[in-house]
Amino acid sequence: MTQDLLYSITGIVLFGIGLFGVIAAAHIIRKLIALNTMGIGVFMVLLAAARHGVVTDPVPHAMVLTGIVVAVAGTALCLWLALQLQLLDSPVPEEPP
């Protein structure tokens, strides 16, 4: 088994673990962490594809960089929505116990 194949398989396993988390977890933060785990799995598959040939391929590296930026943007938007919801749910700061 070649090294890049091993990395690809690990990436797919990470993707699966993340998928389980996205569906099974209840809290939004857990879901987001699971989504990012899936993303890392995909990036690993891409990076492994870069070493599939003889020469290291720069194209998957560029794709992963773009993917990271997009993942940051998506995660930030989800966090913002979750915080807005939290604000709506607790307009008045709770009294200390």
């Binding site: 797919i12 598959v45 891409l46 998957p60 998506g74």
Partner: peptide
């Protein structure tokens, strides 16, 4: 749902590229 969909799509593209 949208992010999950894009990640599935991207994994498909990664496999194709490989």
């Amino acid at each position: 749902a949208g992010l999950l969909g894009s990640l599935c799509y991207l994994l498909g593209v990664a496999l194709l590229y490989r």
